[in-house]
Amino acid sequence: MSPDSSVRVFAITSHQLVLTGLNTLLTDHPGNFLWLGGYPPSVSLFQELERHHPHIVILDDPSLNTLPTLPAHLAEHHIELILLTQSDELKGLEVQIQQGVLGIVHTSEPLGSILGALHAVSQQHLWVPARMRERLLTKAFSFMTQKSNKNPSGIHGLSIKEKELIRLIVHHPEAKALALGEWLGIQESTLRNRLSRIYQKLHLHGRAALVMFAQQYHLD
């Protein structure tokens, strides 16, 4: 499989054991994934993200604590986020989903769970630990519904072209930005800017939240 067709995976961690484990896992089981390596949380991290252009970032809990603006930055650049966590505290994990984390893997789970999360997230599907899935998803989706109910006015600010893009994403949630741009007859950079404006108007982070919102308000 050519690099251009692969899902590019990058890790952010200061723990060498985590990095070694991810390197072994994705080297031995590459599948559709291209392992880009990892980088510790630091001020130069954002330059590394620009250089590598990942599709998915794997991040551990401590790194997230030192980079509070990272989820918003990744959402703005249409990069999906998987969190490696040692926490069993539901409220904190709910907050992470609300801020744009699309995959959560507990460190006590088998290593193969990371591959499951990568496959799900690469298709814009939410992935959380099985033992807390029902409670976590119910609460997170309830929050999204309550939030969107309080901010439906953003719909009225959408342009015809923005609504067209939303409908296209709802019907093709797995399509890459390049393909979406070709279907609409616009440059990929134009599409990304348009999508960023949609997120800002609707107070959303990521495609999964956008698809849910669009279905709820019949924008599909």
Rank of each mutant, 00 (worst) to 15 (best):
3 P>L: 15
3 P>D: 14
9 V>Y: 05
9 V>W: 06
11 A>C: 15
12 I>T: 09
14 S>I: 00
16 Q>D: 14
17 L>W: 05
18 V>P: 11
19 L>E: 15
22 L>M: 14
27 T>D: 08
31 G>I: 00
31 G>D: 13
36 L>T: 01
37 G>T: 09
39 Y>K: 13
41 P>R: 03
44 S>I: 11
45 L>M: 12
47 Q>R: 14
48 E>N: 07
51 R>C: 01
51 R>D: 09
57 V>F: 05
59 L>C: 11
60 D>I: 04
60 D>C: 06
61 D>W: 06
61 D>C: 01
63 S>P: 08
63 S>W: 03
66 T>Q: 13
66 T>M: 09
70 L>N: 04
74 L>M: 10
76 E>F: 08
77 H>W: 11
77 H>P: 10
79 I>S: 04
82 I>G: 07
83 L>F: 05
86 Q>V: 10
89 E>W: 05
89 E>K: 10
89 E>F: 09
90 L>W: 01
95 V>F: 08
96 Q>M: 14
96 Q>R: 14
99 Q>I: 02
100 G>H: 09
100 G>N: 10
104 I>Q: 07
105 V>W: 00
105 V>T: 03
106 H>K: 12
110 P>N: 03
112 G>V: 01
114 I>Y: 00
119 H>I: 10
121 V>A: 09
121 V>I: 13
122 S>F: 01
123 Q>E: 15
125 H>L: 15
127 W>D: 08
129 P>R: 07
129 P>G: 04
130 A>G: 09
138 T>R: 10
141 F>I: 13
142 S>N: 08
145 T>P: 00
146 Q>V: 02
147 K>H: 15
149 N>E: 15
150 K>R: 11
150 K>S: 12
151 N>G: 00
152 P>W: 02
153 S>R: 07
154 G>M: 07
156 H>L: 15
156 H>A: 13
160 I>V: 12
161 K>R: 10
162 E>P: 01
164 E>R: 10
166 I>Y: 02
166 I>F: 02
173 P>G: 05
175 A>T: 01
175 A>V: 00
177 A>R: 03
178 L>P: 00
178 L>E: 14
182 E>C: 05
184 L>D: 02
188 E>N: 11
189 S>C: 01
195 L>H: 10
197 R>A: 12
198 I>V: 15
199 Y>I: 11
200 Q>M: 14
201 K>V: 12
204 L>H: 12
207 R>Y: 08
207 R>T: 15
210 L>W: 08
210 L>D: 06
214 A>L: 10
